[in-house]
């Protein structure tokens, strides 16, 4: 019987030799695979860079395009904002990070400056309108989607900015305060009447007891500062005005 390796010390040597060769080959193979990946990544990077540089302005200025781009990013599992520091190379490449943070700062600006009159709850449409006004005409339009995204980037700051939906209307809350269920209903009803709300409305339309309606409105008035009191109404002694649901022109 002739074995390939043969027997004896020489065979052992040969065995070792082939083992080494295999290891070398495997190294080579994985090396080439890594190289291949690297070149692919480079290609991708260049392509993205080219895409970014040629579409950068469009991304910044065109809300529909920006939305499509962000959808594309999330469908391939990348976040244009993610990265170790300063938004990572995605952000550097696209300038999207700065853009998003800048928008975030403007959102905070609007929320803080209107807080005294709306108690820290602002309607999304109003927020978008005020932010757009703050940015000026040349900065291009922004959408709700952009605002929601920017609010997410504010999350690490722990300032408690949150988007809540009340009666089908999106509101942005800039104070760390839970809106309880009753308050959400009050907000929703107030939206329909330009901010004006009375206890009877809640009793008639929601079947609440007078006490429950009174307690909910009183809490919003005294504890949370979400509404203002009006004692000079012709029909009711006490009318409450939810400031975030009022339409302010200037």
């Amino acid at each position: 019987m002739h074995r390939l390796g043969g027997v004896g010390l020489a065979a052992f040597e040969r065995h070792e030799q082939s083992k080494r060769s295999f290891a070398e080959l495997s190294n080579e193979l994985s090396q080439s695979q890594v190289d291949h990946l690297h070149s692919q990544l480079n290609q991708f990077r260049t392509a993205l860079a080219r895409f970014a540089s040629s579409h950068r302005e469009t991304i910044k200025n065109d809300p529909t395009f920006r939305h499509a781009f962000q959808q594309m990013c999330s469908s391939i599992g990348v976040d244009p904002l993610a990265g170790p520091r300063k938004g990572g190379w995605w952000a550097e490449l696209l300038g999207i990070g700065d853009w998003q943070y800048e928008l975030g700062v403007q959102i905070v600006d609007v929320c803080v400056s209107t807080r005294e009159r709306n108690g820290g709850v602002i309607e999304m449409a109003e927020l978008v309108r005020l932010v757009t006004k703050l940015r000026g005409v040349s900065a291009g339009t922004i959408t709700e989607d952009d605002v929601v995204r920017s609010i997410k980037t504010l999350h690490p700051l722990g300032a408690g900015y949150q988007v809540v939906e009340v009666g089908g209307i999106k509101m942005v809350r800039s104070v760390v305060k839970e809106l309880d269920e009753d308050q959400a209903i009050v907000l929703a009803l107030a939206q329909e009447s330009g901010g004006r709300i009375v206890e009877d409305t809640l009793v008639d339309r929601k079947g609440w007891t007078q006490e429950r309606a009174h307690a909910a409105l009183d809490n919003m008035l005294l504890r949370d500062g979400l509404c203002w009191l009006d004692e000079q109404d012709k029909q009711h002694d006490r009318v409450y005005w939810v400031t975030s649901a009022m339409q302010w022109e200037a």
Partner: peptide
């Protein structure tokens, strides 16, 4: 022009 502006606020 806001009606409650004319009422003294309890808060």
């Amino acid at each position: 022009s806001a009606p409650p502006f004319f009422t003294q606020q309890p808060n």
